[in-house]
Simulated assay, not measured.
Amino acid sequence: MEKAVIFDMDGVLIDSEPFYFQRRMNFFKEKGIQPGSDKFEDYVGNSEKQTWDLLVSESEARREMLHQEYLEYKKHKGIDFKKALRNSVPDVLTKLTENGISIGLASSSPRKEINQMLSDCQLESYFSFTISGEEVKESKPNPEIYLISRKMLNCHDYLAVEDSALGIASAKAAGIYTVALKQAFPMDQREANVVIDELEELLILPQLIK
């Protein structure tokens, strides 16, 4: 295909960042432990490793122990991906596909969560390629995840849809025109090529329709 759109997942396809943040904070509160940061904006766009390096910075052994406990904790407090999915996503993906545009997903989230989201929301068929933060050596803002996506999608032109400063930096470092989806909370999106209010606006961007 000539063109491809590569989506981030959290904050773009699903409105999940506030849920993930609150779940982590509740876990630490129940454990009676003060996390490395209790500021929402410090975690947006981070990989799992970056998140836990920040949550528990003083001891690798303690960090690993708490992370394993948290993995068990979140099994009982999972996100409802169907509810978290942005309403416009199925229609936007359908129209992109109908217009011959290849679709990829480049998310810092774990592979298991990506697969569950795609399955629960019945979106697997739209994506030509997906990659998780577990499948790269360097996390965003390093461009590796987008460079791999470019290679695997094998298109002529690319457009990335991100929300966080880390994601925007990653896509732009890979030489990709980057669209930022505006969020309901303050976020630095100044480095994006353009900021949109709704995903539907992708369908009228000159970079896709020209």
Rank of each mutant, 00 (worst) to 15 (best):
K77F: 13
G78P: 10
I79N: 12
F81D: 00
K82A: 12
K82W: 04
A84Q: 09
R86H: 14
N87A: 15
S88N: 10
S88M: 13
S88T: 13
V89T: 14
P90I: 11
T94F: 12
T94Q: 12
K95R: 15
K95V: 13
L96P: 06
E98H: 10
N99R: 09
I101V: 11
S102Q: 09
I103M: 11
I103D: 05
L105V: 03
A106Y: 05
S107G: 02
S107Y: 10
S109W: 04
R111H: 10
E113N: 14
I114P: 06
I114S: 05
N115G: 09
M117A: 14
M117S: 08
M117P: 04
L118C: 05
D120I: 10
C121Y: 00
Q122F: 14
E124Q: 10
E124P: 08
E124F: 08
S125R: 15
Y126I: 01
F127L: 03
S128I: 00
S128T: 12
F129P: 04
F129D: 07
T130M: 01
T130F: 02
I131E: 05
S132F: 00
S132G: 03
G133M: 01
E134P: 07
V136R: 00
V136N: 08
E138I: 03
E138T: 11
P141Q: 07
P141Y: 08
N142T: 08
P143M: 06
E144C: 04
Y146S: 09
Y146N: 04
Y146H: 11
Y146A: 07
M152P: 04
L153G: 11
C155M: 00
C155H: 05
D157L: 01
D157A: 15
Y158A: 04
V161A: 01
E162C: 01
E162M: 05
L166H: 15
G167C: 13
A169H: 12
K172H: 13
K172Q: 13
A174T: 00
I176M: 04
T178S: 09
T178G: 01
V179N: 11
V179T: 04
A180L: 05
Q183V: 06
Q183F: 03
F185C: 03
Q189N: 09
E191N: 13
N193D: 15
V194R: 06
V194T: 08
V195H: 02
I196C: 02
I196F: 08
I196Y: 01
D197E: 15
E198N: 14
L199E: 09
P206C: 01
P206F: 02
Q207R: 15
I209M: 12
